[in-house]
Nucleic acid binder design. Structure first.
Lengths: 334, 334
DNA sequence: GGCCCGGCGTTATACGTAAAACTTCCACGG
DNA sequence: CCGTGGAAGTTTTACGTATAACGCCGGGCC
């Protein structure tokens, strides 16, 4: 009644266990007659044989499985990264297992105690420091997503050209005529966000008479609203455009603006980042930067398989693309 | 240079491999002297020993890992289910691996080929039929979430009282004075959605002079908007309240209404379901039904461990709770 | 006719771990 | 003085798979 093993199949088919392994592993050419091979396959199917993965992994010393570590699943960017990674993995007969780093569950003793699956390598998105050091201690091939390309911890990097995305956003707003900006930055200290801030500042320096204020907000619509309200009501000349580090922050900013009696986009332009599903769910739809999330996943998986084959994949930044929707317009005539 | 095994640790500590296994497995009391045990633990730490999971799983015949199958990660309901399951799992020294069923990737030959991790059991949310039959074929302990409680495929069920949720929503609208309803139903044939439709119809029968129309929409804001527009512009008496099967649909409906020149909630009330992050990200914030997603995950994991211990967990429905926000109001005076 | 070789298998072994079964030594009670 | 029992280990085995190494047999070639 227990799950049949290759030995059971062998007995039922009247061959040795080795023959079963050869046939089912498609390595039987010139070693087993086609007739016997067919018989083995048939009996395997009849018994409902499924190989024991633990045994196979032990024997082969690898699992053809990658671990994808993401900070959270509450936004569809990482869902799309996963899709891309899984798709690419399938090409290489690989599997992908997801591990949302449990920041909320307190500092996990061992982040991999819960991701118990045996793993050949790790693809990790930007995350908290303690998770990262644990990753490093595991001495597995590591691909980092959207993080500091000079960090030697990782064997490879897959990055997004977030600087260019912010440049496009900023130039779009400059072209519309905006001069006074508020940057609602994510309250996370990570390479991708400092890069964005620099890109905004750098682009603004190309235009005369511009001002830039910065405030920090959590990466969530509900909580970023308060931060946006505060930033918009501080004394001084009110900005006419708000550049947000994420669509969720932008959604919060839009609500804050409306509560303050400001109409988006006529009184205030607001931009997002990421192009989440949320960007088209809210009203007005957000002008934002589209990120090729699926490509990130694909490239991450490509880099990991390269690493596993002993190659050194080259790092390069994937392009990002401005998407103009309804949340930006020329500034009101002062 | 390769990863050290328990045998390496044994050699370095001057004991047998068995002793290492005993000490590290905390089964050494009365079998190994405390001094030796300490020495073994020290050398293990020094060598950076980490047990080979494949070997352990093979030996023990189980993995203490559950697979959580979810239809999609694009909404945070399932992210919260995962959080609850992982939390509960940690209590039992279990791990949880996530498997988003890849409807988008075409019918997977074997849904578990990609989730290669060795698994002790499955917790599955409602999903497409072909994935479900594959699950059934795997003859693993199976817990189903929010699906037909009379379905004998699963060993246990964890359900939400969605019928009561819809009753609360409907009564809320009736109390506000609404009489003419549109049900924007999910275009998925699944127990949870048919149950909801019945609950609405049943509740409306308790009030006189009510009308109910039903239209179907995809579970996504972007695409449900078209369905909502069409439903709101069909000839006949216009409904004053739209009951949606999900917050995403509701977001689409709100946008459709505004484009038609209707103000939410003054001209038209709209309700959601699920209480996603989206519900408070949009404007107006959605009146919706809060689902205890974390509890669902916890109960799912509880049921699975019970199943693995040979017990038969009892099925029961978790309560749902109406959350009144800004998208509902009394109907306009006709 | 001896010899080799290709087709068709089988036997044997290793992967790393957990645990049952066995050994050895010593202290202590009768 | 012998037996018993417990402490402190060790030896051995099994989990299920993949594959290297080894038969065996019949036919073709010199």
């Amino acid at each position: 009644m227990a799950r049949p093993t290759s030995k059971d199949v062998a007995k039922a088919a009247g061959v040795s266990q080795a023959a079963v392994s050869l046939v089912l592993g498609d390595k039987w050419h010139g070693r087993v007659s086609p007739t016997t091979a067919d018989r083995v396959r048939d009996t395997a199917r009849q018994l409902g044989y499924r190989p024991n993965l633990a045994a196979r992994n032990l024997r082969l010393g690898r699992t053809r499985t990658a671990l994808l570590v993401v900070p959270a699943l509450t936004n569809d960017f990482f869902a799309r990264v996963y899709t891309g990674a899984a798709h690419q993995a399938a090409q290489h007969d690989f599997g992908v297992v997801l591990y949302p780093s449990p920041e909320g569950l307190g500092p996990a003793k061992d982040p991999f105690a819960s991701a118990r699956a045996a793993i050949d390598g790790v693809i990790a998105s930007s995350m908290a420091a303690h998770t990262l050091t644990a990753l490093h201690g595991a001495d597995l091939p590591l691909v980092m997503l959207d993080s500091d390309p000079t960090d030697p911890t990782a064997g490879a990097h897959v990055n997004l050209d977030v600087a260019d995305g912010m440049r496009q956003i900023t130039e779009h707003l400059l072209t519309l005529g905006h001069r006074h900006f508020l940057h609602l930055a994510a309250d996370i200290d990570s390479w991708t966000f400092t890069t964005r801030a620099e890109a905004i500042a750098h682009t603004l320096r190309t235009a005369p008479h511009t001002t830039l204020r910065t405030a920090h907000a959590p990466l969530s619509a509900a909580y970023s609203r308060a931060a946006a309200t505060q930033a918009l009501t501080t004394p001084g000349p009110r900005p006419t455009a708000v550049i947000c580090d994420g669509d969720m922050i932008a959604a919060g900013a839009c609500k804050a603006a409306r509560r303050l009696g400001l109409s988006v986009p006529h009184d205030l332009s607001v931009t997002g980042f990421d192009d989440l599903a949320l960007a088209t769910a809210v009203d007005p739809e957000l002008t934002t930067v589209h990120l090729p999330a699926e490509r990130v996943g694909e490239r991450g998986m490509e880099a990991l398989t390269a690493l596993l084959d002993g190659h050194t994949p080259q790092d390069d930044a994937l392009p990002t693309q401005l998407v103009i929707r309804d949340s930006t317009a020329p500034p009101p005539p002062s």
